[in-house]
Simulated assay, not measured.
Amino acid sequence: MSEAIVRKQRPKFLALHEIRLPLPGFVSILHRVSGAGLFLMLPFLLFLFDRSLGSPESFETYKSVVANPLAKLLLLGLLWAYLHHFCAGIRFLLLDLNKGTDLKSARNSSRIVLVVSIALTIIIGVKLW
């Protein structure tokens, strides 16, 4: 017996620019990206911490590094990454407890995470600089 094999025509590549991700999925990806960014920037943060506590000369090095506008922008990005990771982590802990798992509340909690993390970043960023 010979059976005809029917194959579906599948795309040869995945068009990422055509995928419309829902807001909870977007928050989930940002949570992973912010965690990875915080982990990868840990040596820089430890360097700054070391320079700030070593001696008066090393504190001057710390002040010169932090005074650079590029470093300030990087630190502001790290501040947002920390705050977003923290807020989204609380959201995911609540989801693990089966709180807010329906579609409407999941979308609302995603919006809240984005708004709160950006608002806290702006407030703390203005206070710091």
Rank of each mutant, 00 (worst) to 15 (best):
Ser109Cys: 05
Leu30Phe: 03
Glu18Val: 01
Ala67Phe: 03
Val65Gly: 00
Ile29Ser: 11
Leu79Met: 09
Ala88Cys: 14
Gly125Val: 03
Ser52Asn: 07
Lys99Met: 11
Cys87Ile: 13
Cys87Gln: 09
Phe13Ile: 13
Met41Asp: 01
Gly25Leu: 07
Ser52Ala: 12
Ser58Pro: 03
Arg32Asp: 09
Arg7Met: 08
Phe44His: 08
Val115Ser: 12
Leu21Ala: 14
Phe59Val: 02
Asn98Tyr: 05
Tyr62Ile: 03
Arg91Ile: 00
Leu42Phe: 11
Lys12Ile: 10
Met41Phe: 15
Leu42Thr: 11
Thr121Ala: 03
Glu18Trp: 02
Phe92Lys: 10
Arg91Pro: 01
Pro11Lys: 07
Leu46Asn: 02
Asn108Ser: 10
Phe92Cys: 05
Lys127Phe: 13
Phe44Ala: 12
Phe92Ser: 12
Ala81Ser: 11
Pro56Gln: 04
Ile90Lys: 10
Gly89Val: 08
Ile112Arg: 12
Lys63Leu: 14
Val33Asn: 07
Ala67Gly: 02
Phe13Asp: 14
Ile5Pro: 01
Ser110Ala: 12
Gly100Pro: 05
His85Arg: 09
Gly35Leu: 13
Thr121Ser: 05
Pro22Asn: 15
Pro11Asn: 06
Ile112Gln: 02
Gly54Tyr: 04
Leu21Ile: 15
Val33Cys: 13
Tyr62Thr: 00
Gly35Cys: 11
Gly125Phe: 00
Leu120Glu: 09
Ser52Pro: 00
Lys12Phe: 09
Leu16Trp: 15
Leu93Tyr: 09
Phe44Lys: 06
Leu76Pro: 01
Pro69Met: 06
Phe39Tyr: 09
Ile122Val: 15
Leu70Ser: 03
Asn68Pro: 06
Ala4Glu: 12
Arg7Glu: 11
Val66Asp: 02
Met1Pro: 07
Gly54Lys: 07
Val65Gln: 00
Val33Leu: 15
Ser52Lys: 01
Gln9Asn: 12
Phe44Leu: 10
Ala81Asp: 02
Lys12Gln: 14
Asp96Pro: 01
Ile118Glu: 01
Met1Arg: 10
Leu53Asn: 05
Lys99Trp: 12
Ala36Thr: 12
Leu74Val: 13
Ser105Phe: 09
Tyr82Pro: 00
Lys104Tyr: 12
Phe47His: 04
Ala119Glu: 04
Met41Gln: 03
Ile29Cys: 06
Leu75Ala: 01
Leu93Cys: 08
Pro56His: 03
Phe92Met: 13
Leu79Asn: 08
Leu14Gln: 14
Ile19Ala: 09
Ile29Phe: 10
Leu128Val: 06
Leu53Tyr: 04
Ser110Pro: 02
Asp102Leu: 09
Ala71Gly: 02
Leu120Ser: 14
Pro22Gly: 11
Val66Glu: 03
Leu42Lys: 03
Ile124Gly: 00
Ser2Arg: 07
Phe26Leu: 15
Phe47Met: 06
Ala81Cys: 06
Arg20Ile: 15
Leu23Gly: 05
Leu53Pro: 00
Leu42Glu: 06
Leu14Cys: 08
Leu23Cys: 07
Leu48Lys: 02
Leu46Ala: 09
Tyr62Phe: 14
Ile124Asp: 00
Leu53Arg: 08
Gly37Val: 08
His17Trp: 14
Glu60Asp: 13
Phe44Pro: 03
Leu70Ile: 14
Ala119Leu: 13
Glu60Leu: 13
Ala88Pro: 15
Phe26Thr: 13
Asn68Tyr: 05
His85Ile: 04
Ala36Met: 13
Phe49His: 14
Arg10Glu: 15
Lys104Gln: 10
Leu40Gln: 03
Cys87Gly: 02
Phe49Lys: 10
